[in-house]
Design a protein around this nucleic acid. Structure first.
Length: 802
RNA sequence: GCGGAUAUGGUGGAAUUGGCAGACACGUUAGAUUUAGGAUCUAAUGCGCAAGCGUGCAGGUUCAAGUCCUGUUAUCCGCACCA
């Protein structure tokens, strides 16, 4: 009797939905488990198998938890604002709302066909007014608390998408969406002051269970450094030049200063600069370079000496020249540095090129050859001379700076404030009104949601203005404060906004009074386990932690961290071993796999194909292997016998399998969990029969991976109505995981010479005696001196003889 | 350049505290079944005719090393002139 997976899968998906078995119960008496997967962006291309792998991990954990008696929240939703949809709308003229709805319908259908146990009563859509009302609400709270502000600065601008991008969206000088070169542009933009939470984000990492490299990436991204600010007086100019350094201990080795091309000092003292023409020319040259060029041309240092500007080293009164160079960034520290060529590679390269003095202040390197960044004895350094410990020297110097009022210790972060707006249509409107009298005024809370107006043309303005700016009825409004004529903010929020708090809405998705009820949050939060892609570890994961911590400070969410545990799945590569992409044509559509082999096979394969955390190529023939496995499970019916307890032949194997599968699922080792189930299956066929009690255990263990076939067998064979609702996860007896006899190897000097079957609890003496009694071993040690004899319990006997 | 990871059969990948390397699959080969193909079942399958040799490479520690130590190479990922 062949297994009709098409019929069975459809049937069980409907039954689960009818019975509501995967609905999370609020405030239930059971222990809770909140498993979270990154909700998809509903693109027109539909899902690919990578999504399936990403969701299958916690799908298995969630199903197992339910069988273990947990109240499980395993939700799904759609992160639906974003550029691809908008660009598609521009191209086709179809409204993004329609595009989004169609795509969501497509994704929903695909997800349901795989049989994921999501709670479909809690689906959220970030473009839904009931949802983005609260996104706007959180933004206004940030605005109220000074965390959302507007500032004019150089921004990363994508000329192709016509949008301002955050640093995170323009890594490597390429637009994250269309991959064209990003240019620098001066613009008035919204920022979220994420830097204010830098320390909290850093400290919070100590309390959570994230993969080590996830933590490390966040630490690097935040990029905290300790150092000192130092004031250098300028000759003939009534102003000081403030610099940041991590090496205040090398202050005596300063031979020049460098300021960034955009440094404001230059504009203020143009008259006193002898070579303003050359400097203006250099600045123009730098402005032309994209961020990418500027950071890529690392090898070659360029710059211009500023004639007429001389700085005075505050620790020794020495006069040093000031240069302008683009190896110093305006956006980090103070945009000015003290250069110590003897002990910094970049300063060294610059000094060599411009023929500037190099003064050694730390012994240990050869400054004729290269800069020396290591430790050593301080020399040429006044009161620091003779110190050999860097930390002591730094501490002493900072004390000196403070005492003399010329500087202080300080910290800097690589992380910048978050550019929080896009000049685009398909995003949450920023609920702010610009009033000529009152300035920026928040839209009152009771007017939320501020709905996205209908427009005809989604194309952004040529100067990078939002399409909303063209809608008069939207733009013109009354100031909520003074009632006078005012204009609305026309920028929208970036793609990352909606995903920064979605996990909170799942807890209470239909609440009209607040983003989520505090008591429900207290029950469900924090997310027990969050799985997603490595690519979201520095952006989404930091942003959402920031929003959550802000809400925590407001007192509207409990607990300090949103996610207790974070893991990441590896990519599924194309059959050609390269990352799947439309352009390469190596994308695998999950629907096709479901059609041909069934959902259970797809689910099993994506978890069996390799280490869950590593990338692995798709292999059609390995999919067939999983198909064979499922069919062999189905065919167990042909050798089923009666029996309500494990028979002796399979007892130990069953206990071992329960242990292995239970433990491996928790450790993200789905591939070996499935391998253990295959081993069990092979064992059953070797035994030639399986009784009802044994099959029951096998079905439950396999259920999280292959829920349809196991349900179908559960019902057909009369175990009950519904496995997912009625079954209990099996337990194992550790004493039964051990066999009564074990095969050990006998080694001579570490080389295997014989194998021996002995009782598991054999004594060392007895094992060695038996080993020596083996004819082959006896022959080997004949005439030699036995130096050492070892017995490793249940493993081996090793006899060292000469 | 900095940080992190990885390296095991023809392929994907397994291997507690160091203790039988190659679990489980895929593929391949042979056989059975089948009109044929496919599917299924059975057996074999690291390399070598052998003694032996085998976990990127070179050393080291140990009775014993994929695992620990030192050095080195390659690949991948993240950050990248961050002072």
């Amino acid at each position: 009797m062949e297994y009709n997976f098409r019929e069975a899968e459809k049937k069980w998906q409907e039954k689960w939905e009818e019975a509501g078995v995967f609905h999370a119960q609020d405030n239930a008496d059971k222990p809770k488990f909140y498993g979270l997967v990154e909700f998809p962006y509903p693109s027109g291309a539909g899902m690919h198998v990578g999504h399936i792998k990403a969701y299958s991990g916690l799908e298995v954990v969630s199903r197992k938890r339910r069988l273990q008696g947990y109240n499980v929240l395993f939700p799904i939703g759609f992160d639906a604002y974003g550029l691809p949809t908008e660009n598609y709308a521009i191209k086709t003229g179809i409204h993004p709302r329609k595009v989004t709805d169609d795509n969501i319908a497509k994704f929903t259908d695909q997800l349901k066909r795989v049989g994921f146990s999501f709670d479909w009563t809690r689906v959220i859509d970030t473009t839904d007014t009931d949802y983005y009302k609260w996104t706007q609400w959180i933004f206004l709270k940030m605005f109220e608390n000074g965390l959302a502000f507007r500032d004019k600065t150089l921004v990363n601008y994508c000329p192709s998408c016509k949008v301002v991008l955050s640093n995170e969206d323009s890594q490597g000088g390429k637009c994250d969406i269309c991959h064209s070169d990003v240019v620098q542009k001066s613009k008035d933009v919204w920022y979220l002051r994420i830097t204010e939470y830098a320390d909290k984000l850093l400290e919070g990492l100590e309390k959570v269970d994230y993969l080590p490299n996830v933590k490390q990436q966040q630490i690097n991204w935040i990029g905290k450094s300790r150092g000192a600010f130092v004031q250098f007086t300028l000759k003939n100019i009534p102003e000081t030049l403030r610099i940041y350094t991590t090496r205040p201990d090398t202050l005596f080795g300063v031979t020049f200063m460098v300021i960034a091309p955009e440094h404001p000092l230059i504009d203020r003292y143009q008259d006193q600069i002898g070579n303003m023409d050359a400097i203006t020319a250099y600045r123009a040259e730098c402005a032309k370079k994209t961020e990418f060029e500027r950071t890529q041309l690392v090898k070659d240092k360029t710059g211009v000496k500023i004639e007429g500007l001389t700085a005075i080293n505050p620790v020794n009164g020495k006069e040093v020249p000031v240069y302008i160079s683009d190896y110093v960034m305006m956006g980090y520290g103070t945009g000015a540095i003290m250069a110590v060529p003897a002990h910094d590679d970049r300063d060294y390269a610059f000094a060599k090129k411009f023929g500037i003095d190099i003064i050694e202040v730390i012994e240990g390197g050869n400054i004729q050859e290269a800069a020396y960044a290591g430790d050593g004895k301080m020399v040429n350094s006044g009161f620091l001379n003779g110190i050999t410990d860097k930390q002591t020297a730094i501490a002493k110097m900072i004390d000196y700076l403070v005492e003399n009022g010329i500087g202080e210790g300080g910290v800097q972060y690589k992380m910048k404030d978050w550019a929080f707006n896009r000049q685009r249509y398909w995003g949450e409107p920023i609920p702010i009104v610009h009033c000529p009298h009152c300035g920026m005024v928040a839209v009152p809370y009771d007017e939320l949601p501020l709905k996205l107006p209908e427009v005809e043309n989604f194309e952004p303005g040529s100067d990078g203005e939002s399409p909303l700016a063209k809608i008069d009825s939207f733009v013109h409004c009354k100031c909520p404060k003074c009632g006078g004529d005012a204009k609305r903010e026309t920028d929208t929020m970036p793609q990352w906004a909606g995903s920064s708090w979605y996990f909170l809405r799942y807890v209470d998705p239909h609440n009209p009074e607040s983003f989520a009820d505090y008591e429900k949050l207290k029950y469900w939060m924090p997310v027990d386990w969050y799985n997603g892609g490595m690519e979201h570890v520095t952006r989404h994961l930091i942003y959402s932690r920031f929003w959550y911590k802000f809400l925590y400070d407001l007192g509207v969410v409990p607990y300090e961290e949103p996610y207790a545990k974070r893991t990441a799945q590896g990519l599924i590569l194309g059959p050609d071993g390269v990352k799947m992409s439309k352009s390469r044509g190596n994308v695998i559509d999950p629907n096709e796999v479901v059609d041909v082999y069934g959902a259970d096979v797809l689910r099993t394969y994506v978890l069996f194909m390799g280490d869950y955390e590593k990338a692995a190529p798709w292999s059609e023939s390995s999919v067939k292997g999983c198909k064979r496995f499922i069919d062999r499970v189905w065919n167990l019916q042909t050798i089923l016998t009666e029996g309500d307890s494990y028979c002796a032949k399979l007892e130990s194997l069953l206990h071992k399998t329960v242990k292995k599968v239970s433990e491996d699922i928790e450790a993200l080792k789905y591939n070996t969990a499935i391998a253990a189930l295959m081993t069990l299956l092979n064992g059953v066929y070797d035994a030639g029969e399986i009784n009802r009690a044994e099959l029951r255990t096998l079905l439950i263990l396999l259920n999280p991976f292959a829920p349809h076939v196991t349900e179908e067998m559960w019902e057909t064979l009369g175990y009950g109505e519904m496995l997912a609702r009625d079954a209990t996860w099996p337990t194992y007896d550790p004493s039964k995981c051990v066999d009564s006899t074990v095969e050990i190897v006998v080694q001579i000097c570490g080389k295997i010479r014989a194998k021996l079957t002995v009782p598991t609890d054999i004594s060392a003496e007895e094992a060695i005696r038996l080993a020596k009694a083996e004819p082959r071993i006896a022959a080997e040690i004949e005439g030699k001196t036995v130096i050492k004899e070892l017995y490793v319990k249940g493993k081996l006997v090793n006899i060292v003889a000469k």
